Simulated assay, not measured.
Amino acid sequence: MKYINAAEVLPNHLLIEIQKHISGEILYIPSGDKNIGWGEKNGSKKYYANRNKEIKLKYQEGHSIQEISQEYGLAYETVRKITYKK
């Protein structure tokens, strides 16, 4: 995300209207595209879903939470939450 000076891209009447509400501050204007959920654009959501499925499967196969936490580099409590979550 790059910084753009509003005075360079907005019509003067719109700039004056925006300045009535916020002046001298940084304003984020989201794109008009459909809202994309967390991790959907870069694949993080899918990655963690697959990882969690693997963790649940390993637990069901008899691996201990301690073994799984060491293998994945996760805290014991994190693995425990993943394995007990429906």
Rank of each mutant, 00 (worst) to 15 (best):
M1F: 08
K2L: 07
Y3R: 13
I4S: 04
N5Y: 14
A6G: 14
A6P: 13
A6N: 09
A7I: 10
E8M: 01
E8K: 14
V9D: 08
V9C: 11
V9E: 10
L10T: 06
P11W: 00
P11M: 03
H13V: 08
L14Y: 06
L14T: 07
L15Y: 08
L15V: 06
L15N: 06
I16S: 10
E17F: 08
E17M: 09
I18S: 04
Q19W: 03
H21Q: 12
H21W: 02
S23C: 05
S23F: 05
S23T: 10
G24Y: 11
G24V: 11
G24I: 09
G24N: 11
G24D: 14
E25I: 02
E25N: 08
E25K: 05
E25Q: 12
I26F: 14
L27S: 14
Y28E: 11
I29W: 00
I29K: 01
P30K: 10
P30V: 04
S31V: 00
G32M: 06
G32A: 09
G32T: 05
G32C: 03
D33V: 07
D33T: 09
D33L: 13
N35S: 04
N35E: 08
N35T: 07
I36F: 01
G37P: 11
G37M: 13
G37D: 15
G39F: 12
E40N: 15
K41I: 13
K41H: 13
K41R: 15
N42Y: 10
G43C: 06
G43K: 07
S44E: 09
K45L: 14
K45D: 11
K46M: 03
K46I: 02
K46N: 06
A49M: 04
N50C: 00
R51M: 07
N52Y: 10
N52S: 13
N52A: 09
I55V: 01
I55F: 03
I55P: 09
K56S: 00
L57A: 14
L57M: 12
L57N: 12
K58L: 15
K58V: 00
Y59V: 04
Y59K: 15
E61R: 14
H63N: 06
H63P: 00
H63E: 03
S64C: 01
S64Y: 03
S64H: 07
I65S: 01
I65G: 01
Q66Y: 06
Q66N: 09
Q66C: 01
E67M: 08
E67N: 10
I68H: 12
I68M: 09
S69F: 09
S69C: 07
Q70D: 04
Q70G: 03
Q70N: 09
E71T: 02
E71C: 00
E71R: 08
Y72G: 02
G73W: 10
L74I: 04
L74W: 13
L74C: 03
Y76L: 12
E77K: 05
E77C: 04
E77Y: 04
R80E: 14
R80D: 14
R80I: 02
K81W: 06
K81I: 05
I82R: 09
I82F: 02
I82H: 05
T83K: 13
T83V: 15
T83S: 12
Y84H: 08
Y84T: 12
K85L: 04
K86P: 13
K86M: 06
